[in-house]
């Protein structure tokens, strides 16, 4: 049991535990806070995978923007949150069965892949390899991922304009 493995187990347990709280806790505002814990756990997993940039983006974009959006939405719809009512609907037991089945199915599917049983760690990164620099260049290089990057930004712009339009109260109704 190396230090990495212990760290991984701690972060994985924290991630899954707080994810479980997200879907079961009664108060919506608490669910949003548990989501922040889950997102930090996932960021720690990215850091263990040597994906430092993704880990930072996870914290800046998910915790800094998306989780805050969720908290605002929870507060704006506060009157009808029904914190005292049951958080799960009547079909929650079949939903739980389906979730367990999907986990079992995924596990079965993965266990048929030959690489799944390997006990080796990740390949060692070549020393002096600058993954963040490579990633930055790839995102703005016309020979690599410039077009998907620009399409993603257009998608974001369209989504934000659409969100403003949808959430805007029609004043002259």
């Amino acid at each position: 049991m190396t230090t990495m493995k212990v760290l991984f187990l701690i972060f994985a347990a924290a991630t899954l535990g707080s994810a479980f709280m997200v879907v079961t806790t009664k108060k919506m505002i608490h669910a949003a806070f548990w989501l922040i814990a889950t997102l930090f756990g996932v960021a720690a997993l990215y850091a263990l995978l040597n994906a430092g940039f993704i880990a930072m983006v996870q914290i800046v974009v998910y915790v800094g923007a998306i989780a805050i959006l969720f908290i605002f939405a929870v507060m704006l719809t506060r009157k009808d949150l029904r914190d005292s009512a049951k958080p799960l609907n009547a079909n929650w037991s079949s939903a739980a069965l389906l979730a367990v089945l999907s986990f079992g199915g995924l596990y079965l599917l993965l266990s048929q892949w030959a690489g799944f049983s390997s006990t080796e760690g990740a390949p060692v990164l070549a020393s002096g390899m600058d993954t963040i620099g490579q990633l930055g260049e790839a995102l703005v290089s016309p020979n690599a991922y410039l077009l998907p990057f620009e399409v993603a930004s257009v998608l974001l712009l369209a989504a934000l304009i659409g969100a403003v339009y949808v959430a805007n109260e029609a004043k002259n109704k």
Partner: peptide, 9 residues
């Protein structure tokens, strides 16, 4: 896979 299943639930 576990995180995905929790989200599905």
């Amino acid at each position: 896979a576990a995180l995905f299943s929790i989200g599905l639930f």
